[in-house]
Amino acid sequence: MKSLILTTGARLLIALFLVFSLYVLLRGHNAPGGGFIGGLIAACGFAIHAFASGVAEARRALHVDPRTIGTLGLACALIAGLMALPLGAEPFAGIWGEIADYKISSVLLFDIGVYLAVVGGILTLIFALEETL
């Protein structure tokens, strides 16, 4: 099913969804939001693209296999948890550092991992279901 309105609208919406998902991801540190909901929003963006222009087109726009994205997310989260090992802290304890006056932490890395895992997982499911139907 091709719809001109949906295809044109989708192009605008995807950009909006992706930017908003990043905003929610970063905001999640101190306020409602975070990697999970951010990942859902980003996945929604690509899902709309898949509905509008087909799964093959959405896969091309994504460049990477969604399963790989999900696994990379798992790897990010694991690295965030394992970072405490060489520093002698407890497993999954938050590690904080400062680069040019910006505080960064393993907590953010973990959240990014969740974000990627959710994007990868949801898109794997949606693409697989779309393709089999």
């Binding site: 399963r67 790989t68 696994t71 990379l72 798992l74 790897a75 694991l78 948890g81 394992l82 497993p91």
Partner: peptide
């Protein structure tokens, strides 16, 4: 206690990639 759980997941991520 934590590493016996974490190592299979690290392995899983590597093997999958």
């Amino acid at each position: 206690l934590a590493l016996p759980i974490l190592v299979p997941f690290v392995t899983a991520a590597l093997a999958f990639l």
